[in-house]
């Protein structure tokens, strides 16, 4: 971050359509709003189909946000190989890279200044009983790593972010957030 004493967090979340990329971004944004931060959420739009590429940008700060677009993120969450290849070169020095090691089977080459967390998000989600919750696992891990907002707040915000018709999935998603947070906590970085 250019301004170390002030929060200006620029996050890109990327993967393929169907991985819940947009939902993960919306949950982060909702969580940031609940924590009284300034926040914008910008989806890649128009081409959200299962299997296609999907990404979204979330800016979290304590002052007025100029642009919701992010050219150089300081945090990058990638759920598949294509997204890793595409977005990692844009990551800022001293940034954070979290990648889904269930689908990315090699160690990404990044600058030494970047914190890296490999998390088997799909595998952890399957163990919880819902493979679709991999997005929530990785959100939990992100919140734990960055320490800006508590994973508890994200768990509280699920009811607003998840459509009512899916509310029977609230519990497993909550578990997924905590599972990701726990995983991140236990990793030496």
């Amino acid at each position: 971050m250019q301004n170390t004493n002030k929060l200006y967090e620029e996050i890109i979340i990327a993967g393929f359509g169907g991985q819940g990329i947009m939902l993960a971004g919306k949950l982060l944004a909702q969580t940031a709003m609940k924590s009284k931060k300034e926040v914008t959420y910008m989806p890649s739009y128009g081409a959200e189909v299962r299997g296609g590429t999907a990404n979204c940008m979330v800016v979290i700060t304590e002052r007025e946000i100029a642009s919701p677009l992010i050219t150089q993120p300081n945090s990058l969450i990638v759920m598949n190989k294509a997204s890793l290849e595409k977005f990692t070169p844009r990551l800022k020095d001293n940034g954070l890279l979290i990648y889904n090691s269930s689908l990315i089977d090699y160690e990404p080459q990044v600058s030494k200044t970047i914190k890296v967390l490999a998390i088997p998000a799909d595998q952890l989600a399957i163990e919880l009983g819902n493979h679709k919750s991999a997005n929530m696992v990785i959100v939990g891990a992100y919140l734990q790593m960055r320490g800006i907002i508590s994973p508890d707040t994200a768990a509280d915000c699920l009811t607003q972010t998840i459509a009512k018709r899916h509310h029977k999935m609230l519990e497993v998603n909550k578990k997924a957030i905590y599972c990701g947070a726990k995983f991140a906590k236990e990793q030496p970085v």
């Binding site: 919306k26 944004a29 709003m33 300034e38 926040v39 914008t40 959420y41 910008m42 989806p43 739009y45 946000i65 919701p68 677009l69």
Partner: peptide, 9 residues
């Protein structure tokens, strides 16, 4: 398109 698509409080 940005303002239409972006979310903010």
């Amino acid at each position: 398109g940005i303002l239409g698509q972006m979310m903010e409080p």
